[in-house]
Amino acid sequence: MRYERIKMAHGSGGGLTLELIEEIFAPAFGMGELADAALLEDGSGRMAFTTDGHVVKPPFFPGGDIGRLAVAGTVNDLAVMGARPRYLTAAFIIEEGLAIGDLARIARAMRETADEAGVAIVAGDTKVVERGRGDGVFIATAGVGFVPEGRDVGSHRLVPGDVLLINGTLGDHGMAVLSRREGFELSLALESDVAPLNHLIEEVFAAVGDELHFMRDLTRGGLAAAANEMVRHGPFGVRIHENKVPLQEDVAQYAGMMGIDPLLVANEGKVLFAVTAGAAEEALAVLRRHPLGARAAAIGDLVRQPAGRVVVETPYGSRRLLEMPVEEQLPRIC
């Protein structure tokens, strides 16, 4: 560990978060390969199991709230492992003074999002902490899902030549939350993309099956974190074509103004797919027919060289690196 105390950047989803996981938690718990959820065998099939903490500030933001975020985030962690999400639990850490009406609104949003995803919230816990010890409410979730027979997605299947697809514009969630943060208020109508993606993912499986090699939801750290984590898994690199990455005009403008690269910003309704070149077109067509994939695009591919790096090809024919996000891009957005 490079630091003796926790810094905000340890929660950024970037290099320090990875360091924390790889040097503290993984050895302590004896964990092997790290992914969005654990895949467990019990003889009758494979189960995916995950857990997630949500500390977004503010808890209500354009396009969603912490409740929808908690359910969608957990569902998506399971779905990108190839699982069909089924059951969730939720623990609430509530700050003294939170309006009951706000809590009810959050609970309703959780139920609605769970219905949308087709999952049930089956257990929970409640704790209250003194005023000043929490930002309204924190939610910790766990979720389980089941991987259908014969389905195999994961980093072990990544090979050079795989095409990278995303289901829409990047950076919407992070910029929407930031636009409502104290001191950053903007009149732009930015909305979070927070949504459960399991149905969308099922349709891609139905269309291309085994040609789908890998998925990752693009939350904290955005595309930059996901792509850099991918290249840790094998002797290949990621190539991104910058002009193929879909961005909402307002997001691009606001990010430009703030000096923030949208490729590093969190999403809560975007998934990165790696599919074989032969299946890319069909997968893209399926995505674009789905309401949560209207602006889907093929944004790059896995290349042999340079291995271990994420390279962005600019619209000018020049190249640059895309690094793991550093420091607090935007604190507490998910």
């Binding site: 490079r2 630091y3 950047a9 970037g14 290099g15 320090l16 000096g259 190249r319 640059r320 690196l321 690094e323 550093v326 420091e327």
Partner: peptide, 26 residues
């Protein structure tokens, strides 16, 4: 590194070392 900078040029969004680390030499 930007995660754990040793000198000021790696810290700042304006620093030359940080730019080279993040993007390559350009």
């Amino acid at each position: 590194t930007p995660d754990d900078p040793y000198g000021p040029c790696m810290v700042s969004g304006e620093g030359t070392c940080r730019a080279w680390y993040l993007y390559g030499a350009g």
